[in-house]
Design a protein around this nucleic acid. Structure first.
Length: 352
DNA sequence: AATGCGGGGGG
DNA sequence: CCCCCAGCATT
């Protein structure tokens, strides 16, 4: 296995991308980068990393911030529980570890939002500890290299790939080895059109040698998408409008949005005006007009969304204690889901 | 073991 | 349209 690791690390030295989190041993910065890069590509995460570090340069600045500010820094990136967990864990490091980032794998993995992959990444990159990283890139690379057909999304598969990665891991340079495993998966052993001719392992790669690269990795789980119907209401007053905070265990928890009625099918303006708005918002004499219509795709939900301009008496609006009146110019102070940002941009009210 | 959680990109 | 991406928490 020494040969494998040496070849891998040599390849990495020649081909690694220059990325900001690769020039630091600061566990805080490495932590932030790893959380941002969960299920997120480098191209999309890079700017968020730079601005996040600028806004929250260290553990205490993150821990002492309001959650709204942390979510605002995360706006548009998705999987917002990552931001909430980062904030929670920063406070936890302050109170439990006196502000010093934990140095052992067993303490690192106790942080909320840090699982097997991220703990191994932080432990190896920041502290040179010999824990193997197994992410999507590594699954793909190793499954092709060894011709492993165990589905990667089963506990048996996870165990098998973790053990293989552990067995291959360099003990002299676990950090470089781990970076290299993911980088070769990302740059060479890509899902589509992998660059096998440039791969230093092509002569020993089972998938390449048997011309079956697209048979790997094997996955079992099928994702089903749920359809939902959102009806949003733009309620304007003077130079401002009403927004509300999403609570509860659903998408976009703790982000802001417009007053909403969710229906179980597509509904007309007439139906909203005559039935749903009186029923759910208690507005008896609202007049509404369709402004914008869109389909927003999440990985697991399809949101058929309509936006209406709603006009009603001020007393009715104000009776909703969870509606917050803000000036349009203050929209940028609040974190909105991408769906709402798209709407604001489409009708030209402010740039969030 | 199964499910929920965003959003962008590529073929 | 499809699948993929530096995963994790909850149940």
């Amino acid at each position: 296995m020494i040969d494998f690791s040496n070849t891998l690390i040599e390849w990495y030295k020649e081909n690694a991308r220059s990325l900001p989190w690769r020039f630091t041993k600061n566990p805080y910065k490495i932590w932030i980068s790893e959380i941002i890069l969960q299920q997120t590509q480098v191209k999309q995460g890079l700017q968020y990393y730079l601005s996040f570090i600028k806004t929250f340069p260290d553990i205490s600045s993150l821990a002492n911030a309001a959650e709204d500010k942390v979510l605002k820094a995360w706006q548009g990136l998705g999987y917002y529980s990552r931001a909430r967990n980062l904030h929670f864990s920063a406070k936890m490091i302050l109170s439990t570890y006196q502000g010093e980032f934990p140095k052992s794998y067993k303490d690192i993995i106790k942080l909320k939002g840090v699982g097997l992959y991220t703990a191994a990444a932080i432990a190896s990159f920041a502290f040179d500890l010999p824990y193997p990283v197994v992410d999507g890139n590594v699954y793909r690379f190793l499954s092709r290299l060894k011709g492993i057909k165990t589905p990667i999304d089963t506990s048996e598969g996870k165990k098998q790939f973790y053990e293989l990665a552990h067995q291959l891991l360099s003990l002299t340079d676990p950090a470089g080895h781990n970076q290299a495993m993911m980088e070769i998966g990302s740059l060479i052993c890509k899902p589509k059109l992998p660059r096998c001719s440039e791969c230093p392992f092509n002569t020993m790669c089972i998938a390449y040698q048997t011309n079956t690269i697209y048979d790997f990795p094997v996955k079992e789980n099928k994702v089903k998408q749920r359809k939902r119907y959102f009806n949003y209401f733009l309620i304007q007053e003077k130079d401002g409008l009403y927004i509300t905070k999403r609570t509860g265990n659903d998408i976009w928890k703790n982000l802001y949005e417009l007053p909403l009625i969710e229906s179980n099918q597509s509904v007309s303006a007439k139906c909203l005006k005559e039935e749903l708005i009186p029923q759910k918002l208690n507005f008896e004499s609202a007049s509404i007009k369709l402004l914008h219509k869109t389909k927003h795709i999440l990985s697991h939900q399809i949101l058929e969304t309509k936006f209406f301009l709603l006009i009603d008496s001020l007393e009715n609006v104000k009776s909703h204690s969870d509606y917050i009146y803000i000036k349009q110019s203050d929209l940028q102070e609040y974190a909105f889901p991408q769906l709402l940002l798209n709407f604001f941009a489409a009708i030209g009210i402010s740039k969030g």
